[in-house]
């Protein structure tokens, strides 16, 4: 891959939380290319969420730089709100807006931030809802939906902004097992359409199947990265070997 294909370029990213002794991120560097599906795995507390949340500055890095589409978003002069529109994020706990129905959840950001008309925004939302099989729930409120439905709506909410990258933080961890599949299916389709994705997950089989690259994090650093085939069948570091032996 050529460098001009790079969508996000992270250099020596560091994060230390107030009152914590150790860095949650210890100098992470990685280039994420257009269309790449990067999976991030690692033990609990290794800094996966912190890394992901730094990418759209939900967590403010304490060191290093992040170039997104060539712009240094860690520069205080950069208006991060503009760039966040291009970075969809999906949370473990869905975080749908409970006081709005589904259609409103999906259209409020495109209307208020992108200046879309109501008709335009609803048309886009409806098309995406149809794709995830939830067009009939447009008038429902979030607490009338199952976990799997909520998460599919949360993905659609992010997609309605037409983002250039989607960030997922353990999107299936809060779901009952029988609902995991429906969410993974939506993510798989996105990957097949060449959406750039960064996915933190414990679903190793899914990572193996969908990832273009898998990253192993431990103690705030990237310890190993590889293609999914190599990553799972031929781990190099002892730490990854012992991690894989525990989770698979």
């Amino acid at each position: 891959m050529t460098t001009d294909n790079v969508l996000i370029s992270v250099k020596d990213l560091k994060k230390k939380f107030d009152g914590m002794e150790n860095h949650a991120l210890n100098g992470v560097s990685i280039d994420i290319h257009h269309g790449e599906v990067v999976f991030v795995v690692g033990p609990s507390g290794s800094g996966k969420s912190t890394f992901l949340r730094c990418l759209n500055l939900l967590e403010e890095p304490t060191g290093g730089t992040i170039l997104f589409e060539g712009v240094d978003i860690t520069d205080p002069k950069t208006d991060i709100n503009i760039h966040r529109r291009k970075m969809g994020m999906v949370f473990q706990q869905f975080n749908l807006f409970p006081h709005m129905n589904i259609m409103k959840n999906l259209t409020i950001a495109p209307m208020k931030l992108l200046g879309k008309s109501k008709d335009e925004a609803e048309k886009t939302a409806m098309e995406l809802l149809e794709r995830v099989g939830l067009a009939n729930r447009a008038d429902a409120y979030p607490n009338q939906l199952s976990g799997g439905q909520k998460q599919r709506i949360a993905i659609v909410r992010a997609l309605c902004m037409k983002p250039d990258v989607m960030l997922f933080d353990e999107p299936t961890s809060a779901l009952d097992p029988e609902m995991v599949g429906e969410v993974l299916n939506v993510m798989r389709e996105l990957a097949e359409e060449n959406m750039t994705m960064v996915v933190v997950t414990h679903e190793m089989a899914f990572a193996k199947e969908v990832a273009s690259r898998v990253i192993f994090m431990d103690n705030g650093s990237i310890v190993e990265e590889n293609s999914p085939e190599e990553f799972f069948s031929n781990p190099k570091s002892e730490r990854l070997k012992s991690f894989l032996s525990k989770v698979i």
Partner: peptide
């Protein structure tokens, strides 16, 4: 819940919005 706040910010809403 602070997730509500984060969801709003992650879509690109500023603090006031």
């Amino acid at each position: 819940d602070k997730g509500q706040f984060e969801a709003g910010r992650s879509l690109g809403f500023n603090y006031a919005q």
